[in-house]
Write a protein that binds this DNA or RNA. Structure first.
Length: 639
RNA sequence: GCCGGCAUAGCUCAGUGGUAGAGCAGCUGAUUCGUAAUCAGCAGGUCCGGGGUUCGAAUCCCCGUGCCGGCUCCA
């Protein structure tokens, strides 16, 4: 007999070899079609597994994050079975669950067409209808190798060869056997609400030198309602797409004639950008940064010295000027180094914080360009902090505070990641340890929760990334703080210490919003184009009803402009309904209706974007209100 | 860069080998109107570029460019 304890519940004596499902039932947990697996002493197991020692069990419910992941993984297996039956000769690669869905990679002679998706989905529905059980079998690695070799599943064989363990588990449902760690749902009937969402190419093991496979994407949820909600969220994301809104709202364009990945700002987009820049300058000056500006290109020799030539050349643009090769800057650090070196520096000056709205050019590969979020020329809110080693931690904390405060201004939630040394990098082990330690310490000191990304750091140092989450819970890379012990070395930066000797400072690279282009794109989608008054390119539009009030409307326009408001006057001989519709589609915060009544009493009747109507407000009152609302917000100090 | 799809008027899109279409936007005129589209008329195209097949190509084939979805990359 063994003792089985229900998590947070009672304990029972059960015979050895009892199944997980039976044990849960005996413990009074009704698992019928709601539990998909169980956590046994923290390990996820199928409900059909047997128990042979004292343990604690907890059911994994279908609708829990773990349950959904298990179901999605099983859905991938079902999809693979469907593909196998419809496309004889196909080889299967890997098929994991991913965030909000799953995929499976196939080696198939002809790429899948969108029409194939419907066929595969229909076949999957049949398999689900058959309610085939998932059967687990543990076999020796040798046996598994033999099995997959016989089936001609070369990818599975390759995976198996890399597994160090002597035995592996196989899962079979219907005619489909897969090498898999599990666990899985008890049977295909558990899979209710699923949908195939796309097909694309994907390299085997993510390596562009290996074969290109065909990847089928799908998603699955516990209920049809949740699946529909998810699909609606995707629709909403499409409606908010900054590329679509960017055109509709007259913000920006990217023209083939000018070049891919090169953003052209239209008047309203340029206004928005300059409002963000004003905000940035003010906030940086408040925090002890000094504004600097560097040239657009610098001699290639300098990029060799910095290490960019060896590590970043493929992403740079070069130009031969007379006899000399120049590199267009992909980063802003070089000029900042030269500024530091322009005279002898004392420890009393440190930390020095050089801030630049620096426009950089990077040669991104053609297939990766995307609206404003991935471009070839962009402007960073970049700064380099040069300080003593002792100041590193407090400087990092200062930047983190800055970032968090700015995120609250725009209403973003965020997550923090720490990235460690990548394979291709410069500097000594000791320097990397010191830098990485400083970043860890800073975050632990502030009690900031963060995750670690091994090997994702910059070539010159470890970094902290802040990923913000927009209104649709999508994550975007914006802020990053990078520790750099090598550039000061390479450029021989020094400061004179209290002891009169020369010492080596440390440098931090950091951006808050990151790329202004990307941030604008994210903002457009976050606000769905309905910018708060302080960011709205046009804050108010005056809509005179008849020509009789035109003079009054012009007078109001002048008053509002004098008050520093961004106002437009729509004097076209159109109906009020028509003008309101257009202004509404442009998401202008205030539509100001001006008719005979308003002209008579020298008032205004503003309509808000949400449809609220205000009647007969004195001009001054309205102007003050918009002025107040249009002030650049001050960040709230983060705790 | 790689895999797949797409490219027709400013925008959204019809048009499967036989004289290029619609709605919206634009222009002109009429309408002076109270909270999401007033009416009428006009104009607008190297059908992405280049080559080929064909009596004839927006349509079929090849090459390029760009965009979209992914992969890879993202310092």
């Amino acid at each position: 007999m063994i003792k089985i304890t229900l998590d947070h519940g009672r304990t029972l004596e059960e015979p050895e070899g009892i199944t997980v499902a039976q044990a849960l039932q005996d413990l009074g947990v009704a698992t019928d079609h709601k539990a998909v697996a169980a956590s046994v002493d923290g390990e996820l197991l199928d409900l059909g597994r047997t128990l042979d020692h004292d343990c604690t069990v907890a059911p994994v419910w279908l609708e829990s994050p773990q349950g959904l992941e298990i179901m999605r993984h099983s859905a991938a297996h079902v999809m693979a079975e469907a593909v196998r039956s419809l496309f004889p000769g196909v080889k299967v690669a890997i098929g994991p669950a991913i965030e909000a869905g799953f995929y499976y990679d196939f080696d198939v002679a002809e790429p899948f067409t969108p029409e194939d998706l419907a066929r595969i989905e229909a076949r999957m529905a049949e398999l689900v209808g058959a309610d085939l059980p998932f059967k687990r079998r543990e076999v020796s690695k040798e046996e598994a190798l033999g099995l997959f070799r016989e089936m001609g599943e070369a990818y599975k064989v390759e995976l198996l060869e890399e597994i160090p363990a002597d035995s592996v588990s196989l899962y079979r449902q219907g005619d489909f056997v897969d090498l898999c760690r599990g666990p899985h749902i008890p049977s295909t009937g558990y899979l209710k609400a699923f949908k195939l969402t796309g097909v694309s190419g994907a390299y085997w093991r993510g390596d562009e030198k290996r074969p290109m496979l065909q990847r089928l994407y799908g998603t699955a949820f516990a209920t049809h309602e949740e699946l529909n909600r998810h699909l609606e969220l995707l629709e909403e994301a499409k409606r908010r797409d900054h590329r679509k809104l960017g055109r509709e709202l007259g913000l920006f364009m990217v023209e083939e004639e000018a070049g891919p990945g090169l953003v052209i700002y239209l008047p309203k987009g340029a206004m928005l950008r300059s409002l963000i820049e004003d905000f940035e300058r003010r906030e940086h000056l408040k925090r002890g940064y000094q504004m600097v500006m560097g040239p657009q290109m610098l001699k290639a020799d300098l990029w060799k010295r910095s290490g960019h030539w060896d590590n970043y050349r493929d992403h740079m643009y070069f130009s031969q000027v007379e006899e000399t090769l120049y590199g267009v800057k992909p980063m802003n650090c070089l000029a900042h180094m030269l500024i530091y070196k322009s005279r002898v520096r004392s420890y009393r000056e440190l930390p020095l914080r050089f801030f630049e709205l620096g426009t950089v050019m990077r040669h991104e590969r053609s297939g990766v360009l995307h609206g404003l979020t991935r471009v070839r020329q962009f402007t960073q809110d970049d700064a380099h902090i040069i300080c003593t080693p002792e100041q590193v931690e407090s400087e990092i904390l200062g930047v983190l505070d800055f970032v968090f405060e700015v995120m609250t201004v725009f209403g973003f939630e965020y997550e923090v990641e720490l990235s460690t040394r990548p394979e291709k990098s410069i500097g000594t082990d000791a320097e990397w340890e010191l830098a990485t330690g400083a970043l860890h310490n800073a975050m632990q000191a502030k009690n900031i929760p963060y995750s670690i990304c091994e090997g994702e750091g910059a070539f010159y140092g470890p970094k902290i990334d802040v990923k913000l989450k927009d209104a649709l819970q999508r994550r975007w890379q914006c802020a990053t703080i990078q520790c750099d012990f090598t550039l000061p070395e390479r450029f021989d930066l020094t400061y004179v210490g209290a002891d009169g000797g020369r010492h080596r400072p440390v440098m931090l690279h950091r951006v808050v919003l990151g790329s202004l282009e990307r941030f604008m794109g994210v903002l457009v989608e976050h606000y769905a184009g309905a910018f708060p008054v302080w960011l709205a390119p046009v804050q108010a539009i005056l809509l005179p009803i008849t020509d009789r009030v035109h003079a009054y409307a012009q007078e109001v326009e002048g008053l509002m402009k004098d008050a520093g408001l961004r106002v437009e006057l729509d004097g076209r001989p159109e109906t009020l309904r028509y003008k309101i519709r257009e202004a509404q589609l442009q998401k202008i915060p205030y539509m100001v209706i001006i008719g005979d009544r308003e002209a008579e009493s020298r008032t205004l009747s503003p309509r808000l974007r949400d449809g609220t109507e205000w009647k007969d407000i004195p001009v001054d009152t309205f102007v003050q209100r918009v002025q107040e609302e249009g002030k650049i917000p001050s960040p709230v100090k983060s705790p």
